[in-house]
C-alpha cells in the first residue's frame, strides 16, 4: 500500500475495507519487540528442525544447506527455539544498544 496507514483517505479503501494483499503483515516488523535474541551455533545443530516447527512467528527458515536461520526482523525473542533445541545449539543473549 503506497500511503502510510494514517494517511489513507476514505476513497483509498477497497469495497468493505477488505485487505487485498495476502500476508501483508510481513511488512510489519515485530523484531524490535525483543529483549533477547537467539544465536544459533551450526556446529551443534543436527538439522532436526524443531526450532522451525515450534517458532510462533514462523521466522525460522531452512537454508539450502539444510541448516536453519532466524529472521531477527520478526523474532520477538520468546526463547522457545532455544528451550526446545535438543542439541542446545541456540542460546538467548540480551539485546543491547
Amino acid at each position: 500500500m503506497a500511503k502510510a496507514e494514517s494517511e489513507l483517505g476514505w476513497k483509498d479503501l477497497e469495497i468493505g475495507s477488505i485487505v487485498a494483499e495476502p500476508g501483508s503483515a510481513a511488512q510489519y516488523k515485530t523484531g524490535d519487540w525483543k529483549t533477547q535474541r537467539p544465536v544459533l551455533d551450526e556446529s551443534k545443530c543436527n538439522k532436526c528442525g524443531l526450532c522451525y516447527i515450534f517458532c510462533p512467528e514462523g521466522c525460522i527458515k531452512q537454508k539450502a544447506d539444510g541448516y536453519y536461520e532466524i529472521d531477527l526482523s520478526y523474532c520477538k525473542g520468546c526463547g522457545i527455539c532455544a528451550m526446545e533445541c535438543p542439541k542446545d545449539a541456540i542460546t538467548m543473549v540480551a539485546e543491547e544498544e
Binding site: 500476508g23 501483508s24 503483515a25 510481513a26 511488512q27 510489519y28 516488523k29 515485530t30 519487540w33 525483543k34 515450534f54 517458532c55 510462533p56 512467528e57 514462523g58 521466522c59 529472521d71 520478526y74 520477538k76 525473542g77 520468546c78 526463547g79 522457545i80
Partner: peptide
C-alpha cells in the same frame, strides 16, 4: 499465517 502478526511473545496460540 505470516510473520508480522502481533501476538504476544511466546504465544502458543499463534503457533
Amino acid at each position: 499465517f505470516s510473520s508480522g502478526h502481533r501476538a504476544c511473545v511466546g504465544c502458543a496460540e499463534a503457533l
